[in-house]
Design a protein around this nucleic acid. Structure first.
Lengths: 246, 246
DNA sequence: TTCCTGACTTGATTTACATCAATGCTGTTT
DNA sequence: AAACAGCATTGATGTAAATCAAGTCAGGAA
């Protein structure tokens, strides 16, 4: 992976997404962040931090995927966040982690010690403003996710998740064979189940059903082809009228 | 209701919660907000705004309760937010509403025209910083809610919701008869169902079950007594170790 | 090659909740 | 006082997804 650290997203590579900090247009702010940054790497499956643990840094995903999960006493697990490159982890003003953070793929994060980062938020308003935008985006995503968890059927849940992954992948690759989307699932069946509030068996059955009905193709267990994205979206049950920015 | 507009929460009354704007300690900022504020009132049941509608203001709840809901094509509804006094509605930088906003009780909101408010966010970093804190709190609440929607049983969902309402009420009243909590449900059974991802019949049945088992008392349909809050929380199924700030 | 392991699939059965359908309350209208 | 409307309760039945239980399949180690 190229060095994605702290340069402008619209220039291709900024973990604190565009506008907050930019190597080209905000060199002074960048310089301040440079002084407190460091990297951490994790292998697929490793836990980054446990809920309740002391957390003396905030961070930004450079490459790979991390998940946030919550667990009930008896072990029931619910994923509550999926962090992709450029997403932010950690909360300024909080001393301990509120969720389990796990690397589901190999993961590189760019970390900032909390205290200096917080100081910088005060002296550099633009960082707080950018963080606000990102947090509002996450809140919207969380609310979309709540609709999925509370009201969608298993089939709709699977279709929605495939849509989310496909869209993200498309935005990374920017180029797709005519109409069809192709990608590898970055999650196991169990992780998908934790995302969707289902069991892994139900996930498996519904994927088989979508395959049987020609909505998706599967090559092996992970390699997915979506021949008709609109068809998939019909299966997702979402409100018809455009997106949030309609 | 007293005039709750734009003074310090810790002094009893601030719709943009404490620290951002305070009549006593931040008079200059207050003055700027004063110039662009106005009030709106709604009756219980009225819709404040529909998802997709143009929204040229942001606002803060002064009194009453508003809900945010999302709807699927076929009418399935999921509540995704419950706004209490001091909570913020609307998103700087977005032109249209992303959710249906409804007054579930009589409601008064303090509004700010979007453009001047956004200008002020740039010139007054403290407002953006405070908004960030509030949004992060909301995100945490949303994630807690996701765990509820995805993994809790109907009984646990009801117990959790009663706990949430009881806690909020306790924090408003600051005083409770020895041990027992007493409050009126601000939601209909159907609204509770939309909150919890259930049907109203299931809500009704589970409330009856909790009553039968002595976890709660009901006087009429809305007036609730919680004789033992810890007992209720056991029913909610949550992780044992303290709160987020443990 | 065989064995093993972890991820996945598929089948049989159970169950929690949804759905369909009365019926009961409480307050308001006339 | 009767009639009505809006909420809430309760019962009977149906069903989507969970649970329990075998398998299958691909990759890695011995």
């Amino acid at each position: 992976m190229q060095d994605m650290h702290l340069v402008h997203h619209e220039c291709g590579d900024c973990p604190i997404r565009h506008r907050a900090v930019c190597a080209r247009c905000e060199t002074d702010e960048l310089a301040r962040l440079e002084q407190i940054k460091y990297y951490r790497s994790y292998q697929a499956g490793q836990t980054v931090i446990w809920s309740g643990d002391r957390m003396d840094f905030v961070a930004s995903v450079v490459s790979g995927i991390a998940t946030l999960t919550q667990t009930l006493e008896d072990g029931r697990r619910q994923m509550v966040g999926m962090l992709l490159p450029s997403d932010f982890v950690g909360r300024p003003g909080r001393a301990t982690a509120a969720y389990d953070v796990t690397a589901t793929t190999d993961l590189v994060m760019c970390c900032f010690r909390k205290k200096p980062f917080e100081d910088m938020m005060v002296t550099t308003p633009r960082v707080a403003q950018r963080l606000l935008e990102m947090t509002l985006d996450e809140l919207d995503a969380a609310r979309e996710w709540m609709l999925l968890l509370g009201r969608k059927t298993a089939r709709e849940k699977i279709a929605s998740l495939l849509g989310i992954i496909a869209r993200r992948d498309a935005s990374l690759r920017l180029k797709t064979p005519k109409g069809a989307l192709i990608f590898d699932l970055p999650l196991t069946r169990e992780e998908m189940a934790d995302y969707l509030g289902l069991t892994l068996e139900t996930v498996s059955r519904q994927i088989s059903a979508l395959k049987r009905d020609g909505v998706i193709h599967l090559d092996g267990k992970r390699h997915v082809t979506i021949p008709d994205f609109d068809r998939l979206m019909d299966e997702a049950g979402d409100d018809s009228d455009g997106g949030v920015l309609g």
